[in-house]
């Protein structure tokens, strides 16, 4: 091994976990006290401690999901192409395009299409009618007059309301979950990319003109599902690092990498806490010492678990030396 590499590697028995936890926990307490708020501006993405907690808890759905979609190499500097794809993927429903008014007396729905908006999306009134028909099946009678669609129904109020809600939710265009697509120019490379609220990788696979290999989302679970655990781990590192740097609390990336590794070590992204890392510890005593003491003790007794006392917590509980640091080494007699 080259000397520099040898010198840089950490010593055997170093308590890397505790040090990583402290290195992230100390700035974490700082963050509770002075999370950066911009007065008057609604926060678009949770920053600081809320976002950190979200990451460490491995939430299935982040409070504000965001995706960055890059274009294929040949169109990457083509703003028009970006615009086209953006309008294609943005999720639009009939409810977004039209105003739906219920008339319970006449038992009809008046659906007025916002032609200006619809044409910008390349949608005609006829398309709306077609989609409606698909959604309704054989129900009702549709009449069209310019941009006004009349739907005659022969049902009671409750059912009418249900139908109107159904129609409003009918997808006209785009990908479910993706909203507010904006085109952003990368000042460094000069290429355009689309930033879109929401996260839906599986549907984006089907869209042409997208460089799928460069797609990015801040939804770790989504990354895990489509690109695998390694990608999820890298995303975790990137996101946590970003949160800390944005707060002006730089943390050495190795601590973050260790935490991300620990969260991903069992093949899925697991939260740090009783449902994940701590709850998945091997030792009964260590689990019982953390949370839900009785649950762990009782379950251990049912299964007849045995604690080999290899971890830190267990050994402190029973009053033995911990197998760490100076306790790592042991002397043996020469035979």
């Amino acid at each position: 091994m080259p000397k520099i590499k040898q010198d840089s590697s950490i010593d055997a028995g170093e308590a890397v976990g505790i040090i990583a936890a402290q290195s992230l926990g100390e700035p974490g307490t700082q963050m509770t006290m002075r999370t950066f708020h911009y007065a008057g501006v609604a926060e678009q993405v949770p920053l600081g401690l809320p976002r950190l907690i979200e990451l460490v808890d491995a939430r299935r759905e982040p409070a504000k999901a965001l995706m960055d979609i890059y274009l294929e190499h040949e169109h990457r500097k083509d703003a028009k192409m970006a615009q086209k794809i953006a309008s294609e993927i943005e999720y639009v429903t009939i409810g977004d395009l039209c105003s739906v008014v219920e008339n319970f007396q006449k038992k009809e729905l008046r659906i007025t299409v916002d032609t200006e908006y619809a044409s910008s999306k390349g949608i005609k009134t006829a398309d709306v009618v077609k989609k409606m028909r698909e959604a309704l099946g054989k129900e009702g009678k549709i009449m069209t007059k310019k941009n006004l669609i009349m739907l005659r129904l022969n049902s009671n109020c409750q059912k009418m309301r249900k139908t109107s809600m159904k129609i409003r939710a009918v997808q006209m265009k785009g990908i479910r979950g993706l909203a507010r697509a904006t085109i952003i120019k990368d000042e460094k490379t000069g290429e355009y990319f689309i930033r879109v609220g929401g996260s839906n990788i599986s549907e984006l696979k089907k869209v042409d003109g997208i460089d799928f290999s460069r797609i990015y989302t801040n939804n770790i679970r989504d990354i895990e599902k489509h690109f695998g655990i390694e990608a999820a781990r890298n995303a975790l590192v990137k996101e946590i690092k970003q949160v800390m740097d944005l707060q002006g609390l730089p943390v050495d990336i190795r601590h973050i990498m260790l935490i991300a590794d620990a969260m991903c070590a069992r093949g899925t992204v697991e939260p740090v806490g009783r449902h994940g890392l701590s709850g998945g510890k091997f030792s009964v005593l260590a689990r019982a010492a953390f949370e839900e003491t009785i649950k762990h003790l009782v379950n251990a007794s049912i299964r007849g678990e045995e604690d080999p006392l290899n971890g830190v917590t267990e050994n402190i509980i029973i009053g033995q030396t911990v197998k760490l640091g100076t306790g790592k080494v042991r002397l043996a007699m020469k035979e």
Binding site: A15, I19, G325, T326, G327
Partner: peptide
């Protein structure tokens, strides 16, 4: 102390 590895 765990962080320092000061087991004893």
């Amino acid at each position: 102390l765990i962080g320092y590895g000061a087991t004893q």
